[in-house]
Design a binder for these strands. Structure first.
Lengths: 183, 183
DNA sequence: CAGCCCATGTAACGCGTTACATGATTAG
DNA sequence: CTAATCATGTAACGCGTTACATGGGCTG
C-alpha cells in the first residue's frame, strides 16, 4: 500500500496525473516506478475517499488538466504512514535472482556477457545520479548542510542512491574479474 | 514475470512447495520474498504448462509432500530468461519514499526516531549477511576462487548483499548525523 | 504532414498480501 | 497438553504491466 502514500506525498503540492508521472520518472526512478495506468485510477480512488481534491485547469500545451492536491485527511494518512516506522523488505532485484542461477547458462562467454550488460547499466545509472548530485552541489555551496527542508529530505534519497549504485558498480566489476579468472 | 523463473531455477533440484518457501526465506530473503499463497498456485500452473513435474512423497515429519522438479522445457524457459539479459529497474524501496517525505513529520524527534529504527534494521540485516559469508569462508579456505559452480553464483548475490547493505548502514549513520546537526 | 509531447483514461491479466481453513507430528 | 513446525491449499482484494483507445498542439 505504498503507491497511495507516495501520491499523497507528491500531491502536498498541486499536480496533474501526467505531472505526477514525470515526478516518478525524474525524481523517484531511483527507488520507485509507476505507470500512468496505475496513477490515474488511484487518483480517482483517493479523491473518492476524500484524501485528494480535484480541480480542472487549462494547460499551456495540450488539453485541459485535472489538478489534484492532498486534503487535511490525506495529510493525516501520510503522517500516519511515516509515524508507523520504516517499511522494509520491499526489495525485489530480478537481476540478482538471475545471477543466482547464472550457472544454468551453458557457455562461459554468455555469463560474461550478462555481467558486462549489467555493468553498463549500473555505470550509466551511477553517472546519472552523480550528475544530479553535482547540480545540487553547485546550487547550494554549503552542501548538504545548507539545504532547505524541502530539498534536504529528498536529497537524502539521492545520497543513498549514489552510495548504493556505487557499491553495485564495484560489485559487478569484482564479479567480472572473478568470472574471467574462472575461465 | 520473475516468480515463475525463480521457481524454475530453484526446482532444478527437486523440492516441495514448503521447501521452496524455506529457500526463499533463507537464501533469497536478500533480494526477493514470496508467500506460500503465491507459491502453491504458481507451482500448479507451471505443472499444467509442462514446465514442472510433480510426484507424491512421504515426509519424515508431518503429512505427505508434493515434490516438484523442472522439466527440459522448463529448463529452456529458465535459460531464455537469463539469455535475454539482466532485468533491471525492479527496485521499490518504500523506506526511501518515506525518507523523501520525512519533512511531513511535525517533530524533529520523530524524524530522528525514524532513522534510528532504520539503522537498527540495516545493522541487523548486515550482521546476518556477514555471518553467512563468514560460514562460507570457513568452509572454503580458498574463498571465493575455490567455490564450486553450484556455490559460486549464489555466493555472488551474497557478496552484493554485504556491500549493498553496508552502504545502507553507512548512509543511515551519515543521515542521522546530518539530522542531529540540523536540530 | 509526420512524429513527438501533452493529457486522460479502460481492459485484460498476472503478481502480491492478508486472512481463512485444515490437519499431522514433534519437542518441551 | 500446548506450542511450534510440517504440509497444502482457497478467497478477497489491491498492485503492477502491457496493450488499447482518443485526441489536441507544437516542431521540423
Amino acid at each position: 500500500m505504498s503507491l497511495k502514500h507516495i501520491l499523497l506525498g507528491i500531491l502536498q503540492q498541486p499536480h496533474s496525473g501526467y505531472d505526477v508521472k514525470k515526478t516518478f520518472d525524474h525524481v523517484f526512478s531511483n527507488f520507485w516506478a509507476a505507470h500512468l495506468s496505475q496513477i490515474y485510477p488511484q487518483l480517482k480512488r483517493l479523491t473518492d475517499q476524500g484524501l485528494l481534491t480535484v480541480q480542472d485547469a487549462e494547460s499551456s500545451k495540450g488539453p485541459n488538466k485535472k489538478v489534484y492536491q492532498t486534503t487535511a485527511k490525506g495529510q493525516r494518512e501520510l503522517v500516519d504512514w511515516l509515524a508507523h516506522g520504516p517499511v522494509t523488505n520491499t526489495e525485489k532485484l530480478a537481476y540478482l535472482a538471475q545471477t543466482f542461477f547464472l550457472g544454468a547458462l551453458e557457455s562461459h562467454a554468455d555469463r560474461i556477457q550478462f555481467m558486462e550488460q549489467l555493468l553498463l547499466h549500473m555505470q550509466h545509472w551511477h553517472q546519472t545520479l552523480c550528475a544530479i548530485q553535482d547540480q545540487v552541489k553547485a546550487e547550494y555551496p554549503n552542501y548538504p548542510h545548507g539545504l532547505p527542508d524541502e530539498e534536504f529530505y529528498p536529497n537524502l534519497t539521492l545520497m543513498l542512491g549514489v552510495k548504493k549504485v556505487g557499491a553495485k558498480v564495484a560489485w559487478v566489476q569484482e564479479s567480472l574479474a572473478l568470472l574471467q579468472e574462472r575461465q
